[in-house]
């Protein structure tokens, strides 16, 4: 048996950094071509694909795992189990590999082939749940496996774990506050578990209650925006309070595709689908604020990059 007496994860990203040390402190990039020309409205985005596992989910997964260890709920004999539409699974798989845990994931069968390859490469055990049922099918699948043998698993349950949003309250929010020198006026983010929106939103509202917090959801229960949830027709995550954001904007899959293509071809950034949804919504918001002749600093989060979506057909459309 491997010695899993844990060394504390190394802090910082300098030489000798481990997986945990590379999480966070992502750059805040400018999307000049998406801001109304000649306006005083700017759009900035956290480039979360720069996390070591390639997505924003590294933040929440790391905190949920480390808190599990700290509180004694996660011990070396346990298998980590959760439901995910992909990115959290990849984050867990990296962390489980680095910390020596077994991992079991429930994933909808229709996630992108690239994600399936990544999970397989990291050695995760994956249980595919019905493509027809989407992420809710995966959530039910994981809960069922856990209930059959609760002693065997550590079940972080990202949809109901407060450490999910706290990761953003303690890190992503403060990073945005610092990098904008407190000048942020709007925070807009897509919701899946709601962790990013709740954590960053709560932190920013405490700093300045005038900051507007806006959620972005798919415009239909039937969508191709991996990781996002149409809350009205889904199991609403326990950590997500739909009444918390000042407003919710709804984005079509096609509008997100269009934003992804424009980000690639006009800005040189290869962003993922939920990033495209965030950007499309941020652009709508920017136009509206500009029509009211107000200056604004809109900040959003790009949960991942395009690398997991390169086989999708939408790249060839226009």
């Amino acid at each position: 048996m491997k010695d899993r007496t844990k060394r504390s994860p190394a802090r910082g990203r300098g030489p000798g950094a481990d997986f945990f040390g590379l999480i966070g402190r992502t750059p805040l990039i400018a999307l000049g071509k998406f801001s109304p020309p000649g306006s005083k409205v700017r759009i900035l985005a956290k480039a979360e694909w720069q996390n070591p596992g390639g997505s924003v989910k590294d933040r929440a997964a790391a905190r949920m795992i480390l808190e599990g260890e700290r509180t004694g709920k996660l011990t070396p004999d346990k298998t980590i189990l959760d439901a995910t539409s992909g990115n959290t699974g990849i984050a867990y798989a990296c962390i489980a590999a680095a910390r020596g845990y077994r991992l079991k994931l429930c994933v909808p069968a229709n996630i992108s082939p690239e994600r399936k390859h990544i999970l397989a490469a990291l050695g995760a055990e994956v249980i595919y749940t019905s493509a027809l049922e989407g992420s809710d099918g995966a959530i039910r699948g994981a809960a069922k496996i856990f209930d059959q043998d609760p002693g065997r698993y550590f079940f972080p349950n990202q949809y109901g774990n407060d450490n999910n949003w706290r990761a953003h309250y303690h890190a992503t929010g403060p990073e945005i506050w610092k990098d904008t020198r407190g000048k942020i006026t709007h925070f807009i983010a897509t919701v899946g578990t709601g962790g990013t929106l709740m954590g960053v939103g709560r932190f920013l509202k405490e700093k300045n209650r005038k900051i507007r917090v806006i959620a972005v959801e798919p415009d239909s229960p039937f969508h191709g925006l991996e990781g996002m949830k149409h809350m009205a027709s889904s199991i609403v995550p326990k950590i997500y309070d739909r009444s918390f954001p000042d407003e919710t904007l709804f984005v079509s899959t096609e509008a997100a595709h269009e934003a992804v293509r424009r980000a690639a071809r006009q800005e040189g950034f290869l962003i993922g689908l939920s990033s495209g949804a965030a950007l499309a919504a941020a652009e709508t918001l920017a136009r509206r604020v500009d029509s009211e002749k107000k200056p604004a600093l809109i900040v959003t989060v790009f949960p991942d990059g395009a690398d997991k979506y390169l086989t999708e057909r939408f790249w060839k459309e226009d």
Binding site: N110, I111, S112, P113, H223, G224, T253, T311, E312
Partner: peptide, 12 residues
């Protein structure tokens, strides 16, 4: 006939 969002990929 099944109808599945294209996050299925299904390329191969």
């Amino acid at each position: 006939i099944s109808i599945v969002p294209s996050i299925a990929g299904g390329a191969e």
